[in-house]
Amino acid sequence: MPADPAPHGAHAARSDEATIPAGAAAPAGATRARPTRVAQAALRDVPWEVGVAKPDPAIVVDHVTRTFGGLTAVSVDHLEIQRGGITGLIGPNGAGKTTLFNLLTGFDQPNTGTWSFNGRDLGKLSPHQVARLGVVRTFQLTKALSRLTVLQNMLLGAQGQSGESFLRALVPGTWKAQEKANTERAMDLLRRFKLDAKKDDFAGSLSGGQRKLLEMARALMSEPQVVMLDEPMAGVNPALTQSLLGHVKDLREEGMTVIFVEHDMDVVRDISDWVVVMAAGKVIAEGAPDSISQNKAVVDAYLGAHHDAPLSEEEEDRFLAEDQAAERARREDVISSDRGRKRRTGR
């Protein structure tokens, strides 16, 4: 489904300027130097079209489809994700956002299509190989490792640990120094996420919001280049949402590429540099955050086409007739299948 052609050039630039103060007002950003937002500047002149080429794409998706039985969960022709920016992925429930996440990170295999990260094909890689390349994700249902302590959760995120090989694990000398360095780094991150007081608690004893924070901090332990957050704000209280938002913005300032799924449009407008809208498995629109609420395809996807137009009398009659016809057909179906069953069982 092609989206409506979005406004280009001058219009896009104006909307960018309007969002810059929002970035500067972030709680975490307030104490630092004014965020540079390189990605936003780079995306300024990119037209608001589905499948548009970005100046510096980190992830490129081509013709990826995934079907479950008869249902096409994801069917994306072309999508590029700008490096160093925050890309919001939105869409109604069942739009295929999480499935696309699963495909990109190797947790699911597509029926067709290819995608690459930094020009490297990710098509046949398993989840851990994708993660080792620097693409790390979080989950919609938070996966805190309950019976490990907060600190152990964090240490698990560190990459290239020699103590994780079976034989070297038996010789503490080979991993003690690395473990110490990792612990220091983990404590730094925990302090940043205000979890340092909880380092020896079981992760399972944390609150829902703290688990979200822990999951994000754990993902950062792997020093990723791309962070994919699946509904990072879901079920988190408003106060914590602000701090989570600040952390997400920090990621961008550290040069990471962030892709996140979110339903709260205020959040999306606040922090994204670019928004991709999915519905029924397809990308139906992309553009700067401000372009999205005006986009007809997006409004239709969320609210249904013609949601705001009153029905004319003829339309009303037509819909009614269609409904009745459908109902009748269904009833006949049921009766005939009933008969069929009786015949088969010999009654």
């Binding site: 990170t105 947790f107 398993s126 989840p127 851990h128 190989q129 993660a131 080792r132 790390v136 994700r137 979080t138 989950f139 996966k143 805190a144 490792l145 698990l156 995120g157 990459q159 994780e164 999951e215 754990r218 993902a219 332990m221 792997s222």
Partner: peptide, 8 residues
């Protein structure tokens, strides 16, 4: 899955 997503 959490462990997979961390590169193990």
């Amino acid at each position: 899955d959490a462990v997979r997503s961390l590169g193990k």
